[in-house]
Design a binder for these strands. Structure first.
Lengths: 421, 421
DNA sequence: GTCTATATATCGATAGAC
DNA sequence: GTCTATCGATATATAGAC
């Protein structure tokens, strides 16, 4: 197995060419704009039909999405089954097995980008019961495959990368890859470079923990993190901030698109009239939530970069920042994850946030370039993208993983390399 | 109790005037055009709102209908409870009790015409589960009230009117009255005249059964009924007649509006293309079904009227005809029952059939007028309407009632009077 | 298999009554 | 200042016809 997993993975025997065209078009649009963000009208326009005619091919919008998810699940099971067919062997082959699995899964993630988007980037509350069921991919086989593959690696040294977190990172990053990388890249090459980063690390020589903890960048990070803790006291019950806080919670639960102004008003305990007296629009609420979030992030990142430490120490401090950010701003992480679609459109309320993340990515690229230039960092193609996707992994979602353990893993894997001795 | 049961029966405390206006308007339109025949757009137009604005007042179209049905059920229970409060006494008061109950129920039927229409004249298949549940009126109390009232009447002579069928006729005719009479009549007067007809009969002197059976009208009726039995042999499987027969069955099951052309094609075992090759339109199918039906009815009625018997014998023969028609053309009876709304519109596919029923009603009126003129029939206001509603009662729906027993009941009640000695 | 017409329903936003 | 009732736009879906 392994190889090409093109649109063939989504075809169903016996379907007419037009039915297939509808499915493919829907997949493209779902992948780009999400389920709620894609209307039957959009699909019909793109295919060249009238909206009602779609219902000759599919019983409902939901059914199209469910079929895409099912096809993805089937393909994943096939990959896991093929991986299980070759029992793991310790030693030299082990790394190759991990790389093979990463490449296979990442290829699937790209081939089924719509399903990935639906499963991982769509808030569960917008989906009906049937669609939620289809979102539950059969990942037990895949988890077993990752466990076998990672267990085959040379046992970690004392203080090395936590194998459980390594499994988690590899599985999560490869499965959701199509949401983290640009679609024109080769997923198998990306998988290889991601493995380079996680298994071998990017620091040519890495200082001991004590030195990293004592760096100026680290101290700047810790200080910025302390600033995040300042919680504004909740004002009066009908205060504007109360509404913003309610919007934040609701956006995180349902996603921006699926959250109605009525939801927010109900959660804030006010009526529509009051809400619209306090805030301009639903979009303004999102901009405010994202603005505060991005401001906090920018403060911390700027402080770390300005501390003047070496590139390795700076990268370590950034890891500390992002690990804490995933926790402290879990709601905002959900919001941007769900709302990531259409981010590039200038009219999108996510656009400003998107631009700021692009700025931070460029700053990271500059940092890495300096590190490569002065010989402190090894180089890998698209290194900034890989590092960003690893820094943003939701480690806190993995059972009992606190920020300290997550940060320790990032040091061990990202800087020193999970396989390095 | 008893008295006025105007729109007050449908009001709900705490509703705004507009909400009440929406409910009342919906009731009016549902009563006139049925559930499927009334759109939210129609209601909104009539109230002076946009369709979407209706959803501020009611969660769904279904909810409006369910509230109307519930209000009708509550009012019926109140009537039954009030009737039970006065235990029945044998003797002179008994007839008055029956008349009181008939008047009360018929008044409710008129005040809740929309609910009556929804419950009795709407095919169950168009309703959702929740609406079907609301259609199940709490009639056990009412049945008990009718049993008590009718049992209080003087026991029937040997060969007199069957008390069970008398209960059935009174309950059915009063409950569905708003579907059988014009809405501008006073329901309490109508109830009184209906009781006159059923309890005292319209024949001044009624010949014995043997003479009725031997009349020329009776022989003409029996001969016409035999003609109905000629079943056209079902042609080829894709024959036009096969499609017409399938349409007849489907229309009866779901009602004309709710039956789709796809339903008919599936039932006939043909594809849409074949169907449209054989028949002109869905409407043409209905016209053909109703045309055959009306033709058979007209043949029988014309033959009976042309037999030249006396008015009493002729009426008895007509009773025979309609009792058999309810059975032989049960499907058609359902179809016209469900499709009765909008019958007066010239564009309605039911219009032709409606005109023919009007003709038959006029013929019945002429017959009755002759009978009154020559002293053979007693006179009651709107007599033809009452007789028609009794002749069309679906006796076969009452447990184990065959045509012979139903015809015997009509002779005993309609001609001789259930109470006459 | 597709079109045209139209159904029920939702949602962001706002005007105006209280 | 607050909230109710409304609009305008648009969503998903169905059905007759060809």
């Amino acid at each position: 197995m392994g190889g090409a997993q093109g649109t063939a993975g989504r075809t169903a025997a016996g379907d007419s060419a037009r039915t297939q065209a509808v499915r493919d078009t829907a997949a493209r649009l779902f992948g780009a704009a999400g389920y709620a963000g894609t209307t039957m009208n959009d699909i019909a326009d793109a295919v060249g039909l009238l909206p009602g005619s779609l219902y000759h091919h599919f019983a409902s919008k939901e059914q199209i999405a469910a079929e895409l998810l099912t096809a993805f699940g089937t393909a994943l099971t096939d990959v896991a089954t093929a991986a299980a067919a070759h029992p793991p062997e310790p030693g030299a082959h082990a790394e190759q097995r991990v790389r093979q699995l990463a490449a296979d899964v990442m290829a699937l993630s790209f081939a089924h980008a719509a399903a990935v988007r639906l499963r991982a980037f769509e808030p569960p509350t917008v989906a009906t019961a049937r669609l939620r069921e289809a979102m539950q991919l059969p990942t037990t086989g895949l988890e077993r495959a990752w466990r076998d593959a990672v267990d085959g690696l040379r046992p970690a040294r004392e203080g090395g990368a936590d194998p459980a977190l390594l499994r988690f990172a590899l599985q999560q990053a490869t499965l959701d890859a199509s949401g983290s990388y640009r679609p024109d890249r080769d997923p198998r090459e990306l998988a290889g470079h991601l493995c380079d980063v996680l298994l071998h690390g990017v620091a040519v020589a890495c200082p001991p923990d004590a030195d990293l903890d004592a760096s100026a960048a680290s101290r700047a990070a810790v200080e910025a993190l302390a600033g995040w803790r300042t919680q504004e006291p909740p004002g009066g019950p009908r205060d504007r901030d109360t509404i913003v806080a309610a919007a934040r919670t609701e956006f995180a639960r349902r996603g921006y698109d699926a959250t109605t102004v009525r939801d927010i008003a109900a959660a804030a305990g006010v009526r529509m009239g009051t809400l619209y007296r306090r805030v301009e629009s639903k979009e303004a609420l999102l901009r405010e939530v994202l603005g505060r979030y991005s401001g906090h992030l920018a403060d911390a990142v700027t402080a770390v970069l300005a501390a003047g430490s070496g590139e390795v120490e700076t990268l370590d401090a950034l890891a500390r920042v992002f690990v804490h950010a995933s926790r402290r701003f879990e709601a905002e992480s959900c919001i941007v994850r769900y709302g990531w679609s259409g981010r590039e459109a200038a009219t999108s309320p996510f656009h400003d946030y998107y631009l700021e993340t692009q700025e931070r990515l460029r700053a990271l690229e500059d940092l890495l370039a300096r590190g490569v230039a002065d010989g402190r960092l090894s180089t890998v193609p698209d290194m900034a993208w890989h590092i960003r996707s690893v820094l943003w992994l939701p480690f806190h979602q993995h059972a009992r993983t606190g920020t300290a353990r997550a940060h320790a893993f990032l040091r061990a894997a990202l800087l020193r390399g999970a396989l390095r001795g």
